[in-house]
Design a binder for these strands. Structure first.
Length: 633
RNA sequence: CGGGGCGUAGCUUAGCCUGGUAGAGCGCCUGGUUUGGGACCAGGAGGUCGAAGGUUCGAAUCCUUUCGCCCCGACCA
């Protein structure tokens, strides 16, 4: 006769008694009893035929990178629109697991969970310090009230993050130093109108984020909090099975004293990280420095008078480096113009260097963009390709808010730059004598192979996915009379709270795990975030013996702390094996008629090739002990 | 926002240049044969060819507009 699984889609034969499923009842009560304070179980045994795991043999054309393809093929997510995804049951389970690990580590670090709305009053953002910067990534929401006119400024926005919300809220709650030293966090959907959503969950318009905010009395305590949260992050990403590094980062529009990013090395990452294995130095390329400019560098003496020469048709560093001029790029000055908060300014770097735009924020401008060709001509009297920062040659020097030289141009000493005249360049340009610089700074992008600022050994560069970012904010948000977060200290003084903020891209972390943990056949979930730990593949699903054995082993696996999926479909073996590999369940138990005759079932790790045959009598025990081992390793 | 590409069945796509009743594989449904790594046979359902307008006797195909999606770039002078 046909076997019937507790949850299988097989029809219940006429006359079958319908009663509560004993396994479910048992599991439920056991789960409830066990779950207090510990997270090692997720739910009761699930049957493939009863849940929904729509695997795909081919990947949809929209997916470009492997992790994105696998998200779709393994039936974890489906696309709803550009940068918008639905989590299907299997994906939701991973999401919950990652979220739960995050909760546990945040809680262990003393943080406390709350939940703020996703729809936020625009007023509150306008009052904050970065409305102009952030508004372009924010989605506006119209008011429901009839008087609202859609043409006006947005009344509500969808939260891209919550500093502007939590700071005044906590500020109005907290007034004593006795209430300081709190870290709040939430796990919530965030909305950012990304210029270009990309790669599935990697850069989406709507995504799940854990964001945390700390309020401390002083710098010292704030830094202690920062380090405590950093420790929680280390544990979190390690528990997710990720290989990651934390790097010094550019705080960007968040501002603040310093920040660290948590990076997962991957070819498809958005960021470049610079690191040195010798010294342990690591930084985002936006922030990284190198040791190419010696500390004791003495400014060069002039080698001769300025001398103009004709360079017809030469508009690039490369052309000037070739015949007939043969001026190496590292002896040329490159002059670039930007607009910062509507004011023009210039940056001079070596011809062989690139400006790292993120570093320009140290100049104090909030919004920076490259200048247009017209803006450049108005100020310089010349077009790109002929620009130079030599004193007296700039058409409208007052138009420039400043000219800033990268430190590395001091290595040139005397070099070549544009004459601010068409087809003319100037040589014997001495840095201190001739260039019209307001000051020096670090504006260049570090390149692979340059000496590490700590060890002097060659730096390495790797692509990486940013999965977390922590900031020591200082008082940027709290020190505001209208809506800051201030408190009375023990000396009755009013002081702003010293804040930190801490983000983890939960949904992005999921994709980073897939990107890092996969092979040709599919995903290889690390144990802690696997949607199910064990898949029991029942090959001959109409054998009563196979069905009951699956239930027995499954129950033992659950008792050992595993989440169990039973593949009870009446598919051919090949289909089931391929699907099990694709969805990446760490431990597979195979029960088939052939094995039953021999008196064995098979146990296989997703990660390994070999198959272990185990006697049916011992199967439940052996599977249980294997699970305990996997869970603890 | 600029550039490029693509929209044909749930998925992958052919057909478009050269206009003439819309095809295949996978998936799905029915029946049968199968059954340890994405089976086979037979039958079947499923498409207003992204949308709108135009040219034409006739448009998936040509023209215009528009929407959506994907990729590259967003600055190196």
């Amino acid at each position: 006769m046909r076997a019937r699984f507790p949850y299988s889609a097989n029809p219940i034969a006429f006359g079958d008694e319908i009663k509560p499923e004993p396994s479910q009842m048992l599991s439920f009560s056991r789960c409830a009893a066990k779950s207090a304070g510990s997270f090692d179980r997720f739910s009761v045994m699930q049957y493939w035929s009863k849940t929904y795991i729509p695997t795909l043999k081919e990947s949809p054309a929209e997916a470009e990178i492997e992790s994105h393809k696998l998200l779709l093929r393994a039936g974890l997510v489906r696309k709803i629109g550009g940068g918008l995804y639905a989590f299907l049951p299997l994906g939701k389970r991973v999401l919950e697991k990652v979220s739960q690990i995050c909760r546990e580590e945040m809680n262990a670090a003393g943080a406390i969970e709350l939940l703020m709305p996703a729809v936020l009053p625009a007023e509150q953002w306008k009052a904050g310090p970065r409305w102009n910067v952030v508004r372009e990534v924010m989605y506006s929401v119209g008011s429901a009230s009839k008087s609202a006119r859609p043409t006006e400024e947005p009344q509500y926005v969808l939260g891209p993050t919550h500093e502007e919300i939590i700071t005044p809220m906590i500020g109005s709650e907290i007034s004593s130093y006795r209430d300081m030293g709190k870290t709040f966090y939430q796990i919530q959907t965030k909305f950012r109108n990304e210029i270009r959503p990309r790669y599935g969950l990697m850069r989406a318009r709507e995504f799940i984020m854990k964001d945390g905010y700390s309020f401390d009395e002083d710098d010292e305590k704030a830094e202690a909090t920062y380090h405590r949260i950093a420790g929680a992050y280390d544990k979190f990403f390690a528990r997710c099975g990720l290989t990651f590094i934390s790097v010094e980062a550019d705080p960007g529009i968040m501002g603040g004293a310093f920040s660290h990013e948590y990076m997962v090395p991957a070819e498809v990452g958005d960021d470049d990280v610079v690191y040195c294995e010798e010294s342990g130095y690591s930084a985002n390329v936006e922030k990284a420095t190198s040791g190419i400019v010696p500390g004791d560098l003495v400014d060069a003496e002039p080698v001769g008078d300025l001398e103009k020469f004709e360079t017809p048709g030469v508009k690039t560093i490369e052309k000037l480096a070739k015949d007939p001029f043969n001026i190496p790029a590292n002896e040329q000055f490159k002059t670039l113009l930007f607009v910062g908060d509507e004011k023009l300014f210039a940056v001079v770097v070596r011809g062989c260097d690139q400006v790292e735009e993120a570093k320009l924020s140290s100049l104090g401008y909030q919004v920076i963009r490259p200048a247009t060709v017209d803006e450049i001509f108005e100020a310089m009297g010349a077009y790109p390709g002929s620009l130079g920062a030599i004193k007296g040659t700039i058409k409208d020097r007052p138009k420039l808010d400043g000219i800033f030289g990268d430190e590395a141009i001091r290595l040139i000493g005397n070099g070549v730059t544009g004459a601010n005249e068409k087809a003319m360049h100037v040589k014997n340009v001495n840095v201190s004598r001739d260039l019209d610089l307001d000051r020096f700074g670090d504006f260049r992008k570090v390149q692979e192979g340059e000496p590490c600022p700590k060890s002097g050994k060659p730096l390495k560069v790797a692509r990486a996915i940013e999965v977390g970012h922590i900031f020591k904010l200082g008082t940027k948000f709290s020190d505001s009379d209208q809506w800051g977060a201030k408190f009375h200290d023990a000396e009755k003084q009013t002081r702003p709270a010293v804040m930190g903020c801490y983000g983890i891209g939960i949904s992005r972390t999921i994709q980073a795990v897939i990107e890092q943990s996969r092979d040709e056949s599919g995903i290889k979930w690390p144990w802690n975030v696997a949607p199910y730990h064990v898949i029991i593949t029942v090959l001959d699903s109409d054998l009563e013996e196979a069905a009951s054995l699956a239930e027995k082993i499954g129950s033992a696996a659950e008792a050992a702390g595993a989440d169990v999926l039973v593949d009870d479909r009446s598919e051919r073996p090949g289909v089931k094996f391929k699907d099990a590999d694709l969805i990446g369940i760490p431990l597979r138990i195979t029960i088939g008629g052939r094995g039953l005759k021999e008196g064995i079932v098979e146990m296989k790790l997703r990660d390994q090739k070999d198959v272990r045959k185990i006697a049916i009598d011992e199967a439940a025990d052996i599977v249980a002990s294997e699970i305990r081992e996997l869970a603890s390793s």
